[in-house]
């Protein structure tokens, strides 16, 4: 096994009496899609928030590319190459799709304290941003404000923004949520091709997508990982079947 890109050890987070994350350990390896599944309220999003840095863990370590990132804020983690999408689309609503992606390009170039050169005519921002929109199939809607995009288009835009950061790993929180079957299929094949470029930790409810994509699956129930393994191992694990998969398997 190669070194993991992302290494989580004994992560814990409680909200009063509720143990939302209860000693989670997890490794994400290069070239892999690692799916995180579990029933509603299992703490999947809470875990993603702690990895991305929008929520502080109570204890435990998160190592990314060999570095302990527990003390870094969300922006610093993103600069290191940890890109995320949100369960509920989170965009600059008044900005066009293109401007949203340009913001990520500008961040990757490490240069937000420039006060004079106009972004509207800056090819070094526009061209890479446009290329990302083309990659996710949103180029035709580049100049539409994010607020006016359809639900599915906003999800595509989130992925374009994440791509524009040239990240070392993705955290995708239910990227298929609310998408129609056709778009789900398209996104599935898109993510399939992306794994060799960038590994991803994928939270997803769409089991067809998870079984088609995942190299490894971890099952989270009440804040604990009850099983980690390949698709076949998870499908045949009796505890998983009882706790969660039930009729879906």
């Amino acid at each position: 096994m190669p070194e993991p890109i992302l290494e989580i050890r004994d992560l814990r987070k409680s909200f009063n009496a509720l143990k939302a994350t209860d000693g989670v350990s997890l490794d994400l390896y290069p070239g892999q899609i690692h799916a995180l599944i579990g029933p509603n309220g299992a703490g999947k999003s809470t875990l993603i928030h702690q990895i991305a840095g929008s929520l502080a863990a109570d204890s435990g370590t998160i190592r990314f590319l060999g570095q302990d990132i527990g003390g870094l804020d969300m922006a610093a983690r993103a600069r290191l190459g940890l890109a995320r999408s949100f369960q509920i689309s989170s965009l600059a609503q008044e900005f066009s799709a293109l401007r949203n992606v340009m913001l990520a390009v500008q961040s990757r170039q490490g240069s937000s304290f420039r006060f004079f050169r106009q972004v509207a005519s800056d090819r070094s921002l526009i061209d890479p941003a446009m290329a990302m929109l083309e990659r996710v199939g949103l180029a035709a809607r580049a100049h539409v404000p994010a607020a006016e995009l359809s639900h599915g288009e906003r999800r595509q835009l989130e992925i374009a923004i994440a791509l524009a950061l040239s990240p070392k790993a993705f955290l995708f929180d239910e990227p298929m949520a609310g998408m129609g079957p056709e778009s789900s299929k398209q996104l599935t094949s898109f993510l399939d091709g992306l794994r060799h470029e960038t590994p991803m930790l994928l939270v997803e409810h769409d089991m067809d997508a998870v079984f088609a994509l995942a190299d490894r699956i971890s099952v989270l129930v009440y804040g604990r990982i009850i099983a980690t393994g390949t698709v076949d191992e998870i499908r045949s694990d009796p505890e998983v079947r009882r706790a969660y998969l039930g009729e879906a398997a």
Binding site: A52, S54, D73, M74, A75, A76, A78, R79, A83, R84, F86, S90, L91, A92, Q93, E94, F95, R99, N100, M102, L103, A104, Q106, S107, R108, S111, S112, F113, R114, F115, F116, R117, Q118, V119, D122, L125, I161, A164, L165
Partner: peptide, 21 residues
Amino acid sequence: SRFGSALQAARQNGTRLAAVG
């Protein structure tokens, strides 16, 4: 400018701005 872009994005959605670093 780039700064102005980031500033307006901060108004619209600070979390989004942090998420791009």
